[in-house]
């Protein structure tokens, strides 16, 4: 894949699934720095499964994942984190029994250098000042919106180059949804992070994404610029 203009994240012909059940049937996609790419589709289309396989949480049966043009042999989350890929799973999960500070430390647990970790945590405070007064609080006592912030903040401690987000709006009150998505856009633009985002709130995510892939039955059924889907009729056609 050394074609000179390698994408930051490139997925080629990826096949994966759970146990013996194949869910993703050969998907290719790519994301570049500073770009937000939306992955949409119905329940069971394979969006979350695809993200998990990219991040090494599920085995890749066929196909490959390239980072900066380099193929990953059998990716593990640890390896991807070291490269600068962070994953925020569905449900804004945080370690509920750990303090907010410990959660952030876990976000940078793959960093070998303690100073880097502290810098990472400080950097997160500038993005999410609301977190700072809550450091000693148990993360389980945070509100839904605060948990979402912490989940995202955790992934940013590493200063990632690629961010994989699985439905960050899930369970958020409507006013918080656009706030969260707006923040994701800021992160992508300011830090030149490549963002691959799975979202059910299609209209909202199309507003922040430059490009979009529609997944159906584990295959890409449409891919193109977000603008091409902003009018109702086309969206209905490719999505329904």
């Amino acid at each position: 894949m050394d074609d000179g203009n390698a994408k930051l994240l490139n997925v080629d012909g990826l096949v994966t699934g759970y146990g013996k059940k194949q869910v993703v049937n050969g998907v290719g996609l790519d994301v570049e720095p500073g770009e937000i790419v939306a992955l949409i589709g119905h329940n069971g289309a394979g969006k979350s499964t695809l993200l998990k396989a990219i991040f090494g949480l599920l085995p890749v049966w066929e196909g490959s994942v390239f980072l900066d043009g380099k193929q990953l042999e059998s990716p593990t989350p640890r390896e991807l984190l070291r490269f600068g890929v962070a994953f925020v799973p569905q449900g804004n999960r945080v370690f509920t029994d750990l303090s907010v500070r410990e959660n952030l430390e876990m976000g940078g647990v793959t960093l070998r250098d303690k100073r880097e970790l502290n810098e990472g945590i400080e950097r997160v405070f500038t993005l999410f000042p609301a977190i700072k007064p809550r450091l000693r609080q148990r993360a389980g006592t945070l509100s839904g919106g605060e948990k979402q912030m912490l989940a995202l903040a955790n992934a940013l401690v590493l200063n990632p180059r690629v961010l994989l987000l699985d439905e960050p709006s899930l369970g958020l009150a409507p006013p918080l949804v656009s706030e969260a998505l707006g923040r994701i856009r800021e992160i992508a633009e300011d830090k030149r992070v490549a963002v691959l985002i799975v979202e059910q709130k299609v209209r909202e995510v199309l507003r922040i994404a430059q490009r979009v892939y529609v997944l159906r039955n584990g295959l890409v059924s449409f891919s193109g610029l977000s603008e091409s889907l902003t009018d109702e009729a086309t969206l209905r056609e490719v999505y329904l």
């Binding site: 991040f55 949480l57 994953f87 799973p89 999960r93 370690f95 750990l98 876990m106 647990v109 955790n154």
Partner: peptide
């Protein structure tokens, strides 16, 4: 660090893997 990792795995083992804990 080990203790924190143990509590994290007890709390949510998959999330611990996502954070890079073995």
């Amino acid at each position: 660090g080990l203790g924190r990792a143990m509590r994290a795995v007890a709390d949510d083992a998959e999330l611990a893997r996502i954070r890079g804990i073995r």
